[in-house]
Design a protein around this nucleic acid. Structure first.
Lengths: 184, 184
DNA sequence: TATAACATGTAACTAGTTACATGATTGG
DNA sequence: CCAATCATGTAACTAGTTACATGTTATA
C-alpha cells in the first residue's frame, strides 16, 4: 500500500527516498506514514516491478542522490488503484480503546489521569491541524499552481483530522464524566 | 499488543484460542482484532513467557480443546500495561484518506460513487453499533453479574464507535458537497 | 446433501520496525 | 563544539496474513 502513496507523490515530481519521507511527514502522516528504511526497500521493489526508474545524481561530500521517477506502468497502476471500488470498511486498531475496555481493575484516579493526558494530546493535535497543517497546504498550493484540485482534496483530508479530533475530545469528555460519576 | 488483549479476556475466565477469537469478534473487533492463526501462535509464545498455562481437555470426534488460563505473572503484566502512562497519540492508517489525497486525476463521477458507497457502509456500521453491539454488551453484562464496571467501560468503547461513525458521515457529506460544487 | 460450527495447528510469506553503519555540512 | 540536516542503505527481527491440512457434528 505504501507503494501507492509513493507513486502518488512521484506523480507530482521525481524525487529521492529521502525527499519522499520528508513530504509524507508533513502531508499524509496523519493517515499514512512509513519509516525511512521501509521507503528505501519499497522503492527498490517498485523499480524491480517496473513502476519507477531511478537515476543517480552525483554529489560531493554526501551520498549520491538516487532520484526516482514514475513510469507509465507505475502511473497506470496508481490510476487503477485510485479507481477501485470501495468494498468494505477499514479495520482499525485503537490501543487507547483496548486499554479502556479492560480498565476495570485500574483505580479511578490513574484512569482519569490517563484520560486527561490523552485529552491534552488530542487538543494539541487539533490545534496543529487548524494552524500548521492549514499553512502547509496553502504553501504547497502556492508553490504548485495548477494543482487547485489537489489542494482542495488535501484540505478535505485535513478537515477529517479536525473533525476526528473534535469528536475524540467530545468522547473523552463524556467518558471522563462517566468515570467521575458512575465508577466506584 | 495482541498479548494484552488475550490476557484481558483470560482474566474473565479460562478459555481456548477458538473461544478467544469468537469473543474478540463480537466485542473488540472494531478497535482490536486478530486472525485465528495469530491468536494460536501468540498464545504459544505467551505460555513460553509464563504468562498463561494451558490444559488439554480431551474430546471425541473433535480436536482436544487446549484451555488457557492466566498466571500471576500474566495478571501482573496486564495490570502493568493498563497503568502505563499515555505518552503519545496512536499513528493510524486510513486508506480512504490516502486515496482521496491523490484523487485529482480520478473523474468526478467515479469519485462521487466511491464516496457514496463509503457513506452506505458507514451508515450500516453506525446502525450496528446502535443495535447489535448494544445488545451484545447488555447480554454480557447480564451473564456476568459483578462486572458492572466492565460493562460501563465496554459501552464507552461502543460510544466511541457511534461518535466516530457519525463524524465520518458528516465528513463524507461535507466532502461530497465540496466535490459536487467546487471540483471540475 | 451441503455448509456452518467446532477445534487445532504449521509453513510460507509480506509488511513493518529497530538497529547498525557511514560521513560531510550547516546553524546555533 | 554539538546537534541537526542531508543522504544512503542493509540486517535482523517482530507482527500479521494467507494458505494448507484434518475431520466430526449439527443444522438448514
Amino acid at each position: 500500500m505504501l507503494t501507492y502513496a509513493l507513486l502518488g507523490f512521484l506523480r507530482y515530481a521525481p524525487m529521492t527516498g529521502y525527499d519522499l519521507k520528508q513530504l509524507m511527514d508533513v502531508s499524509t502522516s496523519n493517515f499514512w506514514y512509513a519509516k525511512q528504511s521501509q521507503i528505501y526497500t519499497t522503492l527498490k521493489k517498485m523499480e524491480a516491478e517496473g513502476w519507477v526508474q531511478s537515476e543517480i545524481e552525483p554529489q560531493k561530500g554526501r551520498p549520491d542522490r538516487r532520484v526516482y521517477s514514475i513510469s507509465e506502468a507505475g502511473e497506470a497502476a496508481l490510476l487503477g488503484w485510485l479507481q477501485e471500488p470501495v468494498t468494505d470498511l477499514e479495520q482499525r486498531k485503537e490501543t487507547a480503546l483496548l486499554r479502556l475496555f479492560f480498565a476495570a481493575p485500574v483505580d479511578k484516579d490513574t484512569l482519569l489521569t490517563q484520560l486527561q493526558h490523552q485529552r491534552e494530546l488530542h487538543q494539541q493535535q487539533l490545534d496543529t491541524y487548524r494552524t500548521e497543517t492549514k499553512l502547509v497546504i496553502e504553501q504547497f498550493a502556492g508553490q504548485l499552481p495548477g494543482h487547485q484540485t489537489d489542494a482542495k482534496l488535501w484540505d478535505a483530508t485535513r478537515r477529517f483530522g479536525v473533525m476526528f479530533e473534535e469528536m475524540y475530545l467530545d468522547w473523552l469528555d463524556e467518558t471522563i464524566s462517566l468515570i467521575e460519576q458512575d465508577l466506584d
